[in-house]
Computed example of a mutant assay.
Amino acid sequence: MNDPDLSDLSAFMAVTEVRSFRAAARLRGVSASALSEAIRRLEARLGVRLLNRTTRSVTVTEAGQRLMERLGPALGEIAGALDAVNSFRDSPTGTLRLNVPTIVAMHVLPPIVTRFLAAHPGITLEVVSNDTFIDVLAAGFDAGIRYDERLERDMIAVPIGPRTQHFVAAASPAYFDTHGRPEHPRDLLEHACIGHRFASGVLAAWNFVRGDEQVRFTPQGPLVASVIELEVAAATAGLGVIHTFDEFLRPQLDSGALVPVLEDWWEHFSGPFLYYQSRTHMPAPLRAFIDFIKAS
């Protein structure tokens, strides 16, 4: 029996980590058929079935589980060894995969990314926007960016971007002319509110804080969307009150297309963090990115 190819073993680990050929193919930048062929080739060389495949699911056989348990650390050591050499380059090479919220992708990363990639031309950065919390390592990412209330305890967190952000409540002048301005967050229960639904299906609650008093409720109104551009356009057109990150509304607030309300109740919170798992051999592109944002 010929020894299995290292790339086939790596393909096997990629599929088992996410339990999907399509998802693994997207993360590795190859076709699902190429991964499927690599698994078939590996199974033929080993003489055992490693994965059970159906049109809807991928499960690991007992033999596959045994291989996965032993192979994971071994491939990690190989990757670490290669990255140890990579770190000696003037500019490391490789791919850095990040999973970040929409607000970070749109308003935090752009100035950071352009300077980072200019400083490290050998690195390719892949950014996936996701507003739900996921296991970034299991999904094939090197690191994630989230806010502190969503960080896992066993992760290392490094501040990135603005250290303070806040939500804004606003509506168009025409809307307030017709419906009046709320004087207290509870007054919003009588107003048309534009809601935001996360990809998880959860409808975002509105939270207002002043001193020791807190008001939290689920908005009700004529529009619920999962695309911020649609929500902002609806608010600007006078459909109702919107409540979201200041950064999303700043152009309309500055132009007067939207008018802020309940300013002394706006919720302030700490800015985002880059988070990653502690490991002995950190991939060189991730190390370069961490060093870059710490020095910024």
Results as ranks from 00 to 15, higher is better:
Phe269Leu: 08
Arg250Gly: 00
Asn99Lys: 06
Glu69Leu: 14
Gly29Arg: 08
Ile242Tyr: 02
Pro285Asp: 04
Val158Ile: 15
Ala25Ile: 10
Gly256Leu: 08
Pro121Lys: 02
Thr218Met: 09
Arg153Leu: 15
Thr59Arg: 15
Ser36Met: 10
Glu37Arg: 13
Pro283His: 14
Gly144Glu: 14
Leu35Ala: 08
Glu37Leu: 14
Pro251Leu: 13
Thr280Gly: 09
Ile290Val: 15
Thr244Val: 12
Thr95Asn: 04
Gly240Phe: 02
Met68Val: 06
Ser33Ala: 14
Glu62Gly: 07
Asp212Tyr: 07
Met1Val: 13
Met13Ile: 07
Leu253His: 04
Thr114Gly: 00
Ser255Leu: 08
Glu213Leu: 04
Tyr147Ala: 02
His281Glu: 02
Val128Ile: 08
Pro92Tyr: 08
Gly122Gln: 05
Glu231Asp: 11
Arg216Tyr: 06
Ile156Glu: 10
Val232Asn: 06
Leu96Glu: 03
Ile156Thr: 13
Val168Glu: 02
Ala25Phe: 11
Ala237Leu: 10
Pro173Asn: 03
Val18His: 07
Phe292Cys: 00
Ala171Ser: 11
Arg163Tyr: 04
Glu247Phe: 08
Ala44Asp: 14
Ala32Gly: 08
Phe273Asp: 08
Pro285His: 11
Ser296Pro: 00
Pro159Val: 09
Leu67Phe: 05
Thr164Cys: 06
